[in-house]
Design a protein around this nucleic acid. Structure first.
Lengths: 199, 199, 199, 199
DNA sequence: AATGAATGAGGTTTCATTCAT
DNA sequence: TATGAATGAAACCTCATTCAT
């Protein structure tokens, strides 16, 4: 039914806004219910408990991100182009969705997120649709000797770490990331991961 | 007196371990007291309230880090050497003090840390002893045209972001950072920030 | 709904009994909850905190008193009759509601009550319905030269002070105030405030 | 020894000031110790516990008052003179010792004071030196048919009640009791208690 | 005799969750 | 299905009292 899924979406949205803004323990279930225009008990018809709500919210956001990265993905193009596509899209998405970004940051820095991270990295092949786009790019880049021959997780941090910190600074107002600056940062990260041999 | 400082240190240590492990709200005062072998009320002889405890603990860790970075600092040496010194020392310190690292991560991702971050970045010259070593290195590097001419906060993220993510992965067991790998990462970060002109 | 107002009333009543009996700090919220047959947390659905509970309880009692004084008030009758009406009604009310009396005594002798008292006396015209009956009587009496020309607050104390002390003694069992004695006391107080000139 | 009694006096004075100012539960033992420039534990060398301290402090104040009332007491003079002496002295004493007044008010409105009051009034002849001056005056006045033939406790309230309320108002700044006003109040109270027959 | 650090029971308040309606 | 009042465990913090020094 429509109403049904509407309420679920309202709850998810309310939780997102509150947690992004005030952290997990600044977002009591009662406040989420209020903001969702729903009774406290209603939340429990859609989510078994608060942990489940938090985790399902994360999964939705994660799917959003994956969708964005795959949209217009330049399959078959050079590794360089693929990297610039993924980096740019991700950056623009997070900048234009600061609540999503703040939420995921909170999530990864909490008991919830730790296990998530472990699942993802240890399992490596969590999603059967091959969504781990960056990993794929790096593997290809290494085998083509375009990228430094470092563990994938290291390349991943070199490529993504700076961006995530800068987006935080952007949302906090310490720096203004415009297209020109984003491009410079992308290039700097590319400089960091590409093989020094072929310079 | 001995007893005095012992108890304070015990409390600090207990708080560090619990919060690093379970986050701020997985560390109730009663649990900290238990772990410190101290009565609940005793904590309040040393710290006005939980917030103060959390902030003082952070300040202690911050001082540790500053001390480490300044130890054997290669003043007068080239920017390149200074960067490698700071990066390496910081990395080794955080790897060998995983609780300190986890704690600071939690701290920066919380209401406490946000303001701290703002103070640090806006104020820029917080500590009169010139402890803001990285910023100094970057300024010098830019003026010598050795480093990319980017906002200091961007250089800072390019240089430090990857390391911080990798140390988290290291403490979680997803990668093993040995001296050789650390050196490679340092070089990769240096590649990221140095001016492309003089390659 | 019934349940709603019932619970609130139960809490108010429990607080009244405990505080009247044992003072503010002999009445922890847990004890109030127990006596009201309610969970501790339930109190906070009806009152934001203990202070609010204490103040709202006072306001309810105050309204009771005002209602009693205005009931059958002999408007248009001589000042003497009005005084005897108010004095008698107040006295009978307080004697038959010893908990209300004890509560208000505690209240006026506490940080809560001090400010209340100041509001009342400085503001003077707190309630727009002209409930400040005694003050009105005194003003009329002075202008008719029936009463001593003293500050209103002095007349007020002369008229009410003895009664309040005696009601305390009555509730403690040191004296038995029957109708005859109440009348004699009323007359004595009247003797105290009326102008000596027209004797 | 001097030092000994000095400390006891310091503690008594500190307790007086704090409790008069902030009430019993705004005066923790630690605060009393601080204000008395004494260690917390020291208080317990002079007073078994907080209750004992509170009660002994009251007894000291009570003795002060008795001393004042007996000083220059017009024995053998008419009841009228004796009443004016006692009323005036008491009034002046309380006005010039607002802390004593506030303390005794708090005391009488608390579990401590209730029992005290009972002792006093039931026992009636508590102190063997005949200090119950007012009662004596009233007995004499009744037998001489100068005063109304009312229970002693009623006369007592008629005579003292207004004054106590007015002193409170004075200490709160709602009225300024000067010698002239005190005299008028004394006369009004006298009007209240004296026999109407011989007017 | 004096100290004051330490204790821990007990106070107020919050909030995830349940359940009668 | 939805509600939201009610619950009570658990959080933070205070403070009278003790006791080793």
């Amino acid at each position: 039914m429509m109403t049904n899924s509407d309420k679920r979406a309202d709850i998810i949205q309310a939780a997102l806004e509150l947690i992004a803004d005030r952290g997990f323990h600044g977002a009591p279930m009662s406040a989420i219910a209020d903001k969702a225009h729903v009774a406290a008990g209603t939340i429990y018809r859609y989510f078994e408990n608060k942990d489940v709500l938090i985790n399902e919210l994360f999964l939705e956001l994660e799917n959003n991100v994956i969708g964005v990265l795959l949209h217009d993905y330049p399959s078959g193009k050079p590794v360089h182009d693929q990297f610039f596509h993924v980096f740019g899209e991700l950056c623009r998405y997070l900048i234009s969705h600061p609540l999503h970004f703040r939420y995921m940051e909170q999530y990864f820095n909490s008991p919830y997120g730790i296990s998530k991270r472990r699942d993802k990295l240890v399992g490596k092949k969590i999603d059967p649709d091959g969504h781990d786009t960056l990993i794929g790019i790096f593997q290809e880049g290494i085998s083509q000797q375009i990228l430094k021959d470092l563990p994938l997780i290291v390349l991943s941090s070199l490529a993504i770490g700076p961006m995530l910190y800068l987006i935080r600074d952007h949302t906090l107002g310490f720096v203004a990331l415009d297209d020109s600056l984003i491009l410079q940062i992308t290039e700097a990260c590319w400089d960091g991961i590409r093989s020094s041999a072929n310079i």
